[in-house]
């Protein structure tokens, strides 16, 4: 046990820095993935049929192929046209990958808003945009938030695949520490604890937000 603790303490600087990179990967993935997912969700609910086709194809394609494949296509596959650094190949692939799931989450959020509320808003003279901003958007977001939080957690853990395109994130550091120490159990448990800590903090933030946005369901 004391060996384990000293390994934790000694590896701290390396893992700490790597945790920052894991967070950066996840942040880029979500900051790009959210708006992209919103666009795809909008396309999937559009009245324009080709847009709906596009959304269906996009979601099918992105969800239907492994994330590691998508990362490798961006990192190794595009070298003839474009040399992406590992960080960007991984984070952009993560963004695409998550956008497909986020699109489905947002679509079901919007579909959960009763038509009557849209009608009530439009009957007050509110425009389509005003209704989206004031009524449909906020209500859809409230419904989608738990699933979005779930997806964010998956994104953080999936960012570990960036290790395979040379990014010095948490899992990469664990791989290297294992290779040099021949103590896989120690370092894989340590890295698991780092992921766990990040996910717990993220869960806390999402729960807080959920609580703040559900005032209307409490007295």
């Amino acid at each position: 046990m004391s060996d384990f603790l000293s390994a934790v303490v000694e590896s701290w600087p390396l893992f700490f820095e790597a945790a920052g990179r894991t967070l950066a990967l996840s942040a880029v993935a979500l900051l790009l993935g959210l708006p992209l997912g919103a666009l795809v969700a909008a396309a999937s609910m559009s009245r324009v049929r080709p847009l709906r086709w596009f959304a269906t194809a996009y979601i099918g394609l992105v969800r239907g192929t492994p994330l590691i494949t998508q990362i490798f296509i961006l990192y190794f596959g595009l070298t003839i046209v474009l040399l992406l650094p590992g960080f960007w190949a991984a984070s952009i692939a993560l963004a695409f990958h998550n956008s497909a799931y986020i699109a489905e989450i947002l679509r079901s959020g919007f579909q959960s808003v009763p038509v009557g509320l849209d009608e009530a808003s439009r009957s007050l003279g509110m425009s389509w945009w005003q209704t989206l901003r004031r009524v449909r958007g906020p209500l859809a977001f409230r419904t989608a938030l738990p699933s979005l939080g779930n997806q964010f957690i998956i994104a953080v853990k999936d960012s570990s695949l960036a290790a395979f395109v040379t990014v010095d994130e948490l899992f990469q550091v664990a791989l290297r520490a294992t290779a040099s120490s021949y103590e896989p159990l120690t370092y894989y448990i340590i890295v698991a604890l780092y992921y766990l800590a990040i996910v717990l903090i993220l869960t806390l933030v999402v729960n807080r937000l959920e609580h703040a946005l559900s005032k209307h369901r409490r007295s």
Binding site: P114, G116, L117, A120, V135, L139, L213, H216
Partner: peptide, 8 residues
């Protein structure tokens, strides 16, 4: 169905 905005 009244259709009040539940979040407001």
């Amino acid at each position: 169905q009244f259709n009040l905005f539940p979040h407001l």
